[in-house]
Amino acid sequence: MKKYVKDLMVAAVEFPHECYVLLKLTDSEPLPEMLPGQFVEVKVEGSPKTFLRRPISINYVDRENNQLWLLIKKVGEGTQKLAELKVGDKLNLVFPLGNGFSSVQEKGEKVLLVGGGVGVAPLLDYGKYLKDNGASPVFLLGARSKSDLLEQALFKAIAPVYVTTEDGSEGEKGFVTQHTLLEKERFDRISVCGPKPMMMSVARYAKATGTPCEVSLENMMACGLGACLCCVEKTVKGNVCVCKEGPVFDINDLTWNI
């Protein structure tokens, strides 16, 4: 798939929560083809400490309004600067990067999409894709507390949403892997994005139940293009670049101790 380096324009800036920003970007031309689970590398201007580009997942592609959405958690100077962007500003992107989540394998397949924290970001686009292409996605989203749950209305408009919060302020109390849904139902496959410990525990559940499972990794990156070999993950095939061969991996290809 062709990659681009391009200035996109900020069409909207929303703050779903004080720690997050949702950037809606647009362009004068139709946005290029992108796959759910792929990511972009954004150039952060005006932050001397932020030298390298920042990898951010594609949260959603709104074709009707020609918008690319990025859902960003403020964790350091780079992401803080991104949260200060204003409507009309330009943002330079290298995109789309990486492999993306698996395409629909079978009509009607039941796919569980598990997200934790800002890891829910790529699942919105993926859930929409699955539904539009005849699969049956189900979301299981985890957060610290009710106010950390992002884009709930949008997820619910696509498919059933199950929720866990660590403080019990919404949905079931605990971690996603403790949700009763996992005892009651079986799925054809699972896709996960979130903190590594969460992805590992979902991977453990998947292995125990014999469910195919893919995870989206967030290794530190420099080029994002498979050129520098900085972002590698150990796999059964040796060290491979998360930015190019990933970020989505079948858990059986990883060497995780699960």
Binding site: F51, M220, A222, C230, V232, E233, K234
Partner: peptide
């Protein structure tokens, strides 16, 4: 060569460090 283990890079002001190790 498999190169060194991850992490292989870290950012710094106006630059970066790498230890890819000739993978």
């Amino acid at each position: 060569r498999e190169g060194n283990d991850y992490p292989r890079m870290v950012e710094m002001a106006s630059g970066m460090l790498n230890c890819v190790g000739l993978q």
